[in-house]
Structure formats: C-alpha cells, structure tokens
C-alpha cells in the first residue's frame, strides 16, 4: 500500500527539482549570481567546492616559498613588505575557505584534505626559491599570472566566490608591483645582481605560463565551467593575454624572456610562442616537483604544532562562557 504514496512523493520531488533547475538555468542565462541557499545542481556545487578549496590551499601553501625569505630580506623595508604580502596570502586563503564553507563544507575538513594530500593546490608553489631575485620573479610573474586568472573570477556566477575575488584582486596588485620593483632594482645594480634577476626570470617564466592550466583541447572541465559562468575565458586565451602584457614589461626591466620563438604575429595580433613542456607540468602535478613533499610536510607540521593553541582557545572560551552563565 505504501508504494503508490512513495511514488507520488518522488514525482513531486522530481517536479520541484525541475522547477529549481529551470530557475537556476534562468539565473545563469541572465548572468545573475547564485547565492548560497539557492538550489544548485550537485555538479555545480562540487565543482565550486573543488575549485575554491584548491584556490584557498594555493594561497596557504603559497606563503611558504616567500616566508622562506622574510628573515633574509635585504632591508627592513623589504622585510616589512614581504611580511605584509605573506599575511595577505593567509588572508586570501581565509576569504576563500569562508566562500567554500557557504557550500556546505567545513574549513577543518578542507584543511584535513590538504594535509593528507587528498587536495590539490597550484603546482607553482612546488618550485623552490633559492635567491632573493625569486621574490621579484614570484611577484612579477606568479602573482601577475594569478591576477590575470583571477580578475575574470570576480564575475564568477557564485556570489561568495566573486566577492572574495574582488577583495583578493585589490590586494594582489601590490604583490605584482613590489615584485616588479625588486627585479627593476636588481637590473639597475651590479652585473651579478643582473644575472641573478635574469636567472630567476628564466626559472619562473615557464612555470608561470603553466599556471593557466592545460591547453584548451586538453582541459575537459573548462567548457562546463564556462557554461556555468564560473570561468569567463579559456586557459589559452588568458595565457596569451598574459604573455602580451609581459613582453613590454620585460623590456622596461631589461630582462629576456626565455623563449627564442617568442615573436609578434601581425596577422593574429598576438605573440607566437614555443610549445610548453607539459611533461614537466604533469610531473609536478603528480607530486614529483622540486618541493611537493617539503610543502606538505611543513603545512602538516604547522597544523599539528598549532593544535594546542586552537584547543586552548576553545577551552578558554568554554570556561569563560560557563563562568558568565553561573554569574548571571
């Protein structure tokens, strides 16, 4: 006797889902925003959780290559700047964890996924920073590529993600400029300093181009992300745009971009460039980059070393609340 009733409940649910799907599709078609409590397809939610948490992890792991240089920065001014930048990255990680959290996943869970090696972060942070010039190259190239990627994300269809990105982009422009300035100062210095700057550019140029992800024909999720208005431009479009911005900037710096085939194509109105070494990209992505193990080990240690602080603060809050309750 219960079967028909169950059937009808199921069909009502299905009807409701169809209606909700139609409302969702309509909002996307109008280029409006989806907000946390709106109905959304499971795949949209999962894609966003994956993308936003990976982005948050990248910011958190991204603190490491630079914090490496805080104690050795060449002046008090540079030290203060670097600290501010690393603090911004922690902040960006937290904005993004909060945005992801509105989709129904806790920060603790995301952090656990990261330290257990179950979550990805941008492979750029698995490269090492052996010289001071790397701080310049990271700011100019890595943060530059990040900005290029992130500016269109300010218009991502998921409201909390777009809002977090607006805040992040505002802060990132200081990161890129300070990097450019570090390189410029080195390029106006001694021959040894010039060599150091060029060497850093040589090492970071290709990895920064890889930050835009695989070529369009090998990026299976891109089409769906673009249909959902999460992604606004393809990987190759953004990469091309970035290279177009770099060339004149490299001229100002007086550095050479390490690609002999980099030439202006009048017909395409864009730069032609060499094929990217995607084997290297996949190796680093697979965990075999220069510093993958070290980055995760450091993150895990920091998390475990901080456990007593988190517990003590929670316990203090609990006791204070209990005291207040008895007093009342």
């Amino acid at each position: 006797m219960t079967a028909p009733a169950e059937l009808s409940v199921a069909s009502i649910d299905e009807h409701r889902d169809d209606e909700a799907q139609a409302r969702f599709d309509d909002l996307i078609a109008k280029d409006s925003r989806i907000e946390p409590r709106d109905w959304m397809p499971d795949a949209y939610r999962k894609t966003l959780i994956r993308q936003i948490s990976q982005h948050a992890h990248s910011e958190i792991i991204g603190m490491q290559p630079e914090s490496n240089w805080i104690s050795r920065a060449p002046s008090l001014k540079r030290k203060a700047i670097l600290m501010a930048k690393v603090q911004d990255e922690a902040g960006h990680g937290l904005y993004l964890y909060s945005a992801a959290q509105t989709l129904g996943i806790g920060r603790e869970e995301m952090m656990q996924q990261l330290i257990e090696g179950r979550a990805r972060y941008s492979s750029i942070f698995n490269y090492t920073t052996p010289t001071w010039a790397d701080m310049g190259a990271i700011g100019w190239l890595v943060d530059g590529a990040a900005i290029c990627n992130q500016v269109p994300l300010c218009r991502a269809s998921y409201g909390p993600y777009g809002r977090a990105m607006v805040r992040i982009c505002k802060e990132e422009s200081f990161h890129q400029r300070q990097g450019f300035e570090i390189l410029l100062e080195l390029m106006q210095g001694t021959d040894e300093q010039k060599r150091m700057a060029q060497d850093a550019v040589d090492r970071w140029y290709w990895p920064s181009l890889m930050m835009f992800g695989p070529p369009d024909d090998e990026s299976p999720n891109s089409a769906q992300s673009m249909a959902w208005n999460i992604k606004r431009f393809s990987n190759d479009e953004l990469r091309q745009r970035f290279v177009g911005m770099l060339v004149p900037q490299a001229e100002v710096l007086g550095v050479t971009l390490p690609d002999p085939n980099l030439t202006w194509n009048e017909e395409r109105q864009a730069y032609d460039m060499s094929e990217i070494d995607w084997d290297e990209f996949h190796e680093v992505l697979a965990g075999r980059g220069p510093a993958n193990a070290e980055r995760l080990r450091r993150r895990r240690e920091a998390h475990e070393d901080g456990a007593w602080v988190r517990e003590a603060a929670a316990e203090y809050a609990r006791k204070q609340a209990a005291k207040a309750a008895t007093a009342a």
Binding site: P36, R37, T102, L103, G104, G106, R310, E311
Partner: peptide
C-alpha cells in the same frame, strides 16, 4: 534559518 556556513561540528564557531 541561520546564515550558510556554520557546520556546528568545528572546534571554533563561525562568525
């Protein structure tokens, strides 16, 4: 209904 994000299971609450 509260704001989205509070899981109720984390050691530190959401503000």
């Amino acid at each position: 209904m509260s704001t989205p994000g509070e899981t109720g299971t984390e050691a530190w609450p959401l503000w």
